[in-house]
């Protein structure tokens, strides 16, 4: 899912930077509208560290292997902090380990960060179950974790399939891209379960960490419509 340098044409890389810039601006604006924007930074910073190392945890899915991404977890727990967290995590992965690349940073941030923001809204549906319902939190956590990977894998697939260079054997490359995308289905389950466990654990140990997003949501919405 981390697209390296030299795979995508320059126009797609530029487009990626444009969408990532827009998403970052929107997220930062939403964070700035909070009563205390600094409040979420410790949480966001720790989860950025988790995101940064998660890509080292490889899960073999024959014939290939996939790694944890944690974008769904970041979205569920961090809300709008998730996008800057993904951007910073990807930057360090690209600079330190050549995992991803600097030219494709924008594309990768869009592919992983935008689904994270969608997962945040998906996770907030747990209010329908009541905000201290463990079952509801578990189900919505699972959905958020699975959707984060699923949407990212689909977005990466669309970008890669539409930009296969002309000199390659397009059919073979397309088949291998489809195989890699399918390999993310087991990962969706793994990340979904992981996100659900973390969400239920936080609900039991320190519900403020995930409830904060729930409580603030209506207030922000009112402010937005004014």
């Amino acid at each position: 899912m981390h697209i390296p340098d030299g795979i995508l044409p320059a126009s797609v890389c530029l487009g990626g930077y444009a969408t990532a810039g827009a998403a970052a601006w929107y997220s930062l604006r939403k964070i700035g509208q909070k009563e205390n924007p600094r409040e979420g930074i410790p949480k966001a910073s720790l989860l950025t560290a988790a995101f940064f190392v998660a890509s080292w945890i490889h899960i073999p899915v024959p014939p290939t292997s996939v790694h944890l991404v944690l974008s769904g977890l970041l979205g569920a727990v961090l809300g709008y902090y998730a996008f800057p967290a993904v951007l910073i995590g990807l930057f360090f992965q690209a600079v330190m380990f050549q995992h991803g690349g600097l030219t494709t940073l924008g594309v990768n941030a869009t592919v992983m960060g935008v689904p994270a923001l969608l997962c945040y809204h998906l996770f907030r549906l747990r209010r329908l179950f009541g905000s201290d319902s463990r079952l509801g939190t578990g189900i919505c956590g699972f959905l958020a974790g699975a959707a984060g990977i699923g949407l990212s894998a689909l977005a990466a697939m669309v970008i890669l399939v539409t930009t296969i260079p002309a000199h390659l054997d397009a059919a073979a490359e397309r088949a291998s891209i489809y195989a890699l995308t399918l390999a993310h289905v087991p990962l969706m389950v793994v990340e979904g379960v992981f996100t659900a466990l973390v969400a239920v654990f936080l609900l039991r140990v320190k519900p403020v960490l995930i409830e904060g997003e729930c409580r603030e949501a209506p207030a922000r919405r009112v402010r937005g419509t004014e």
Binding site: P4, G6, I7, T64, L160, E173, S176, I177, L180
Partner: peptide, 8 residues
């Protein structure tokens, strides 16, 4: 290059 992964 393989499935969008690769290098030079």
């Amino acid at each position: 290059r393989h499935a969008g992964h690769g290098g030079i």
